[in-house]
Structure formats: structure tokens, C-alpha cells
Nucleic acid binder design. Sequence first.
DNA 1: GGGGGAAGGACCA
DNA 2: TTCCTGGTCCTTCCCCC
Length: 954
Amino acid sequence: MATGGTSSSSGEGFLSRMALNDNKAGMEGLNRDKINKIIMESSKGSRFYENELKKEQQVNQRIERMMLQKAHITEQQLSKAQAQVEKMTSDLERGRDLSRVIVHVDMDAFYAAVETRDCPDLMDKPMAVGSMSMLSTSNYHARKFGVRAAMPGFIAKKLCPNLVIVPTNFDKYRAVSAEVREVFADYDPHFLPMSLDEAYLDISDHLEQRRGWPEALRTHRLHTNNTGTARVEDHGGLQETVEVEGLSPVLFENSPSSSPCLQDAAGGEVEVFGTCAEEAVREMRFRIEQKTSLTASAGIAPNMMLAKVCSDKNKPNGQYRLPSNRQAVIDFIQDLPVRKISGIGKVTEKMLGALGITSCSHLGQEMALLALLFSETSWHHFLHISMGLGSTHIERDGERKSMSTERTFGEMGALEEQFSLCKELCQDLAQDLQKEALKGKTVTLKLKNVNFEVKTRAWTLPCAVATTEELFAVAKDLLKTEIDNVSPQPLRLRLMGVRVSSFASADDKKPLQKSIVGFLHKKQTDSSSTSQISSHKPVKEHPPRPPGQTQPSACPSMVQQRRGQEGHAWVPSLGGVEVGGTGENQQSFLQRAHAQRLRLQAEREDPPEKGDCNGFETRRGPTSSTTTPEGTQTHTPKNTNTSAETDISMSALTASDKMTHEPSAHASTSSYCSTEPESGTDSLTCPVCFREVNTTELTVFNRHIDQCLSGVTMGQNNHTDTELERGPCVCEEEVEKEITGGKREEGPKEKGSKLLSRCVLDSVGLRLDSSAGDHTESTTGLLLYETSTANISLSTVGLNPVCLNTCPNGDVSIHRANTLKVSSQSDPHVRVCLLSPGGPRPMTTPKPESRDHRGPALTCPVCQETQDTNDLTLFNRHVDLCLNQEVLHELGGLASVDRTTHTAPPAAHKEREQPLQRAPQKGKSKRRGLSPPPPSKKAKALGPAWNTIDKFFR
DNA sequence: GGGGGAAGGACCA
DNA sequence: TTCCTGGTCCTTCCCCC
């Protein structure tokens, strides 16, 4: 395999990135060569090693490119950069702030110390905390053998055969950490914890107060079994307080003698601390030790970067203060190896080393060169370091950016296991998210294969998600995509993780408008019940969406994700009415469906016959009764055909659910972004059949709606009872085959043509009046269709080109703009499935014919008024608002919307044409990785189904 | 060209 | 035989407007 790396600059047969990192306290003066030899012998040939080799090669290539770039730098460029650096240096110098006293406190070998404290037998033994796979930390005895954190246990054992490895016990460490933090809080209530054993404090304010404190407040009693104290040393003007004795009975046996303690009136030993920074920090460490029997080291400096370096200076069990004057800072930083700086790791160190830069003073000397070779962010960072500058303000309430969970395991190749684990991770993560009341829009799946290659696949949703079902809906599909990518080979994993990021801002957390759930609720919904989802307020509480304000686009289609590597969102020009993706959008969908239904009902001259495909009230085919947990029987159609809404859930859950055989999953969500009822509700009203469903389980309720919609509209049932019981889990290919009868062209390739949904047209009010004959045209219907991101949208027929297909007996096509042609030989109840136009399409392309060429003016399908516009955007706006009003009106809701505002002024028009939600580009092949190469730009632009669409318009 | 998403990677404890 | 976990930030590529 990878052999080139052995002859790289890292040395013959030697991988520098795997070599011992002795940049840690207690590891000075080790026999590096010997240790490295053992590490290499233990690792060589392993997949991990091969992967490290690969990474090393990549770094070497980076360095080669950098050196090449350096060779082309001209004197002129250099002097220009130098001028830039000098200007920036003087700017930074002017802003230098030496007024704060920042402390970095780091517990010494924290986990190991806790374990040793609790098991004194370990005191004199080399020990580490972790497992044979990985060590979290080691004590100082073990460090003498080269055993350190982040080293696999089996290698550590080879370095130190007597090493005792103690398993981690995070509950215990958390408890100790809490005690330590209590002490921190006395010095800086807003301290910044970096981990369980480390924190930054700004003690400036404390010192201010401390100056006025009487001695009694600075006096602390020693526990009888501890005698620790400290002494202050003077090192060439740099005052240094060295903690010396007893405080670390378990770790540091060679502590120097202490200064004498005083005795209090009761005869107990006490320690009196001074008022300066060193004394305050010494006192803090003293108190930590008294409280936990563990020692801490600290660094005191004018900024965080320096404090961090200082805390390492006298580790373990010591402290170091860097005086707050510029010269002291400059002197301190001069000979500091760059690797000592937090943020400079082995790669950066190596790159800088290639330029001859090993210390911070070199950094300053070569800054012009660095400015030319590195990014602005990087060289600015370097400049700060070279000047000894760092943050003087401890960001106390920094918002969390992401949350994740991941698991490493033995090789896993079975799909069932993978999907099952994926769900477990989603469950764990959902719990964590719930604890912090977080919801995020981006879900990332992290995979590490058995070759240690890490891949991340992310999907950004238009709405924030947090529940297991929502997370799983996305993660599972990302996983499925990766499985498909390596198919027919199995995806052999050793790690899987799920991350959520792009957390909702405060604004996003505000209640959403027009929640259908409020509408769905039983009227007597307990008003005192606490809403779990803030958005789920009754519709009355929310005003109608202002004209021009778009709703978030819907969530991506699973089908699209699985099928297309190049899927793109396409928010239709009816902006704001897309449904099916988000909870909000689903709600809108249902609301509109309801409104449309009522309107159509009222319009109907003849009551629908049994089985009429317009007939919401009529049901064809067998029906079944679902017994709710409460024992109430709910009439539900026995039909597994799904509504457009549930189509998403079907496609979202099909594959993996089948694979994992998790019966709960299929009904768990109807989209990525679920809608949950408020707690305290004991029944929900079905928006289709208007019956109360005695359940608060959304899964049950969703299923009811699915079945209801299916039965209402499809009027026929080709599925079996078994299928019903199993839920709408039909694999996409099966559906496609079934619907198209295998007739679809195999073009280039239908591969891209995404079968998006077996939708039920009249469930949203599409008039498919087949009673007049085999071929009927409807000019006023609303067509449900789905965009390439699985947004189910309500759109007037022909306003957006769609590709239609039917099954098994029908044929639906776009006959003309604004016209739907239906043909059915045997059954008037045509099932229509939609093929995504796919691809990112500007709303204007392909434009339907202009009004002049299209014939009559546009007629609103809701209010039936002819609109004096042929601008589709304006018309869409009108329809949208019309529907809104219709829904609100039907719900007995809000003040009416002035329809005169529907025809938007030019400004609002523009607003509607704001950039569309950009689609996530799924699975696109990057520079690296295993994904297939990306499609051509043209293919991407057009989208996979364009060939198909094109045929309709040709 | 700028903005922003996706993916990968560096780095830290 | 065996090389973690969880988090942040940065860079690069790419697409869209």
C-alpha cells in the first residue's frame, strides 16, 4: 500500500506525525528514539499507520506547494507585505491591553490523580486512565516511560509493561470538577471552563476587592492530614510562586519544603494569603487541594494565550506569573517554541519548521513571508502570537455551535447494525439537545471506515430539528447514500457520529405562525399545558403572514437524497406554500388542503358519488378500524397509498426501516421536521376526515392521516392488509416500478428522474374530474407536486412545469400551461406520481408562456377571480394569500386579508424574488473521499429530470 | 466577486 | 488484535446570484 511516505521528509521508514509528542509536563529528557522505535514497531502495518502515512504525505505535499510558492515570491511582494505587517503591528501595539489579570488553571493529570486519590495503591505505580484502545491521561510515573494521553493502551503497555490501566469514570471526574469549579467561582463567577480540569479566570475584579480585605478573609485552615504550602521565588525579576509541598501527596513526592504555617487560636494550622495576584492564585490552588486532595497548576498573565503557556511552565503543582509589562511579555515570548502555543499543532509546526520557524521570535521575523504564504486569518494569528497578544476578554457566554455524539466500535458492515446504531446515536443526541433545549438545522453524519478514513456528510434543513425521529430521518438517509455509494461492497465502518449544528437563533425560536397543530387540537385544549414546541400555538395567536414574507422552504426529499448526488432545492414561485417538509410547511399544506377542500365542496354542484376522486367524504376500497389506545375506534381507510405528505415519511423511512425492521420508525415522522402536539392534549382532529383521533401520539396520528388521505383520494387499493399493518414502507424503486409500470424511459438516465411522490391530487383540492370521459381537462385545479428537495408545493397547474406520471391505469401530462390532461382507461381514480424536475432552476426558467401567448388571464383557483396580471410571481402571491385567508377564515380565525393587497407592488414583487433557499449539494464529490465524481455543471444546472421534462414541452 | 453550504482537516483537552 | 470523544475553527471547493 502506501509506501511513498516512508521516503518522505519525515525520514526513512519513520512517520514523524506518529512520533512521541513529549510536549507535555513530566516528559522531559526521555529517550525519544527508543520510545519512537517501540511506537513504530507497534503500529507499522496497521490500517491506522497506513492512514497516518497518507496524511503525512498530504502534509508533505502541502509543504512542497508552499515552498514552491515561496520560491516565486518577489522582493517587491515581500516589501509590500512587510509594510502591511508593520502597519498592522503598530495598530496592534497601540491596542495592547495589559490591564487584565488572566489566570489559566489546569488540574494536574486530572483523571489519573482522581483515581490515585481514590486508590492509594496506585500512588507509586505507573498508571493511566483509559483502555487498551486509548488512554485519556497518565500519571507522572507513566510519563517517564513515554506513556501519555492520546496513546493507545496497547502501545503504552509495550512502553511500560507494568502500566496499570484504569478505566475512565466520568461521573466521578464530573463530581470532582464541580467541586473545583465552586472554588473558581469565588475568584471569577464568570470563569470559562474549557474542560473538566481546566478553566480561564479573569481575576482583575477579585484583586480589586481583595486589596481591601482584612487578613481574616485571606486566612485558610489546613486540614490536619495536609501540610501543603508554598513559597515565592524570584527569578530574575519574574516573580514565581512555586507550590511545593504536601499538597499532592499522591503525585508529587519530591516537593520542596514549605514555608511555616501559622497557628490559629484553636491550635490548628492556618495559611494566610496576601493580596497580590500570585497570592490569590496560590490561595485558590490551596483551597482546591484542601477540598479535593488534588493539585492544580496555574498561569497568570495579561491575556489568555500567555496564561495558558504560563500554566504549563511550572507543572505539576506550580504556578507562574508573567508580569504585566510589555517588555516582560516580549522577553517571555522570544524563545518560546511555537508548539507551546495553543492552536499550533503538529501540522502547523511542521509547516513552520519547513520555513525555518521554530520559535515565536522567528515567527515575528518572518511575518512578511507568512503573510504571503498563509491565509489572512492564519498570519494574523501568527502576528498576535509573535507579539504576545491574546484575548483579554474571557468570552463567558459563548453560544454553543454544535452538539454531537459518536461511537467507535469494531468493524461493522451489516446494514441492520449500522442503521440501528445510527438511530441510537440520534436518540442520544436528541436527549442531549433536549437537555439544553437546542434545535439545529444542520445534521451531519460522520463516518470512519476501517481504513480510518473519515467522511462527513451534512444536510441543512430549512427548519431546526431536535427529535430522534427528525435526526434519524436525515442521518439515516445520509447513511443510506454512503452505503449506496460503495455498493455492492459493504460499508465497513469503525466509527459513526451524528452532529447537529446551525442552532436556531432566538428569532428562530419564536413561535411560528399558523400552526396547524393548534388547529388540530381538540377545542378544549388545556390552555395551561406547557407547549413543548413553542411554535405549536393555536392558529389564532398568530397573524397572517405578511405579504411577501416567505416561509421556510421545505425539507429535502429522502428520495432525492438517495438518488441524486446533485440535488438542489427548488422553491417554487408560489413561494411560501410549499408543504410537506417542515412542520410549519406541513401545517400550511394541511391548512390549504382544508381550505381547498371546503371550497371545492361548496362549489360542487353534484354531491360526489361514492368513490368520486374528488370526494373527501367518500371512500372507496376496504376500510379498517383502528383502535386507539383509549379504545376508541377510528374509521380509517384501508389503503396504503400515501398522501403527498406521508410520501416523505415513506421515502424517508423506507429503506432503513425495512432494513432495521423497526416498526416504530415508519410512522414516527412524516418529514424531517416533525410537528408535535402540545402536551396535555388527549386527542387530535384529523384534518381530512374531521374525526377526533384519540391519541396524542403523533406517530399514530400521522398514520391515521396518511391512511385517511390515501383512502379518501385513491379510492382504490392495490395493497394488502399486511402492507397496511406494516405501514407505508415501500421501497422507492418498487413504487416507481409499480407506478410507471416499468414504462419509463431509461434515458440518461432516469437515474436523475426522481420519483417523488405518489400523491393524491384531490387531497389538496386538485380537480380531476374524470366523470366526463377518458380525457378530461381541468383548468382550475391545484396540483400537488414536489420539488427536488422534496418540498411538496401547492402550485397552480402549469405555473411551474412538472413532470407527471400515473399508475397503473392513468396517464397525466401537462397538456398546456394551466391545464391538466387526464386520461384513464379503466379507472377514473388516477393515481398520479410526480417526477421531480430536479436541479436548481431559476424561477424564470423555463418560463411558461407569457400571458399573451397563453391565452386568457390567470384565474385564481381559490377565489376564482381573474387576476389582472400575467406576472406569475404576483399571481402566485395572490394565490398564496388567498389560500391563507381561506384557511384562516375556515378556522374562524383572524381578520380577513385584504385581497386587494394580493397584487403586490413592485417592491414586494422583488421581495418575492429574493434568492431562493439554496439547496444542499448532497454527496458531491470533493477533492477527496470515496464519492463519485460530480456531474457536469450543465447536468447540475439542469437537474437530472430535465430530459424528461423537456420532452413534455417539446 | 461575494456569500454561503459542504466536506475535510487541524487542533484541543 | 487493539489508535477516542466531542467540540471549534479554518480552508477549500463549489454553486448561486
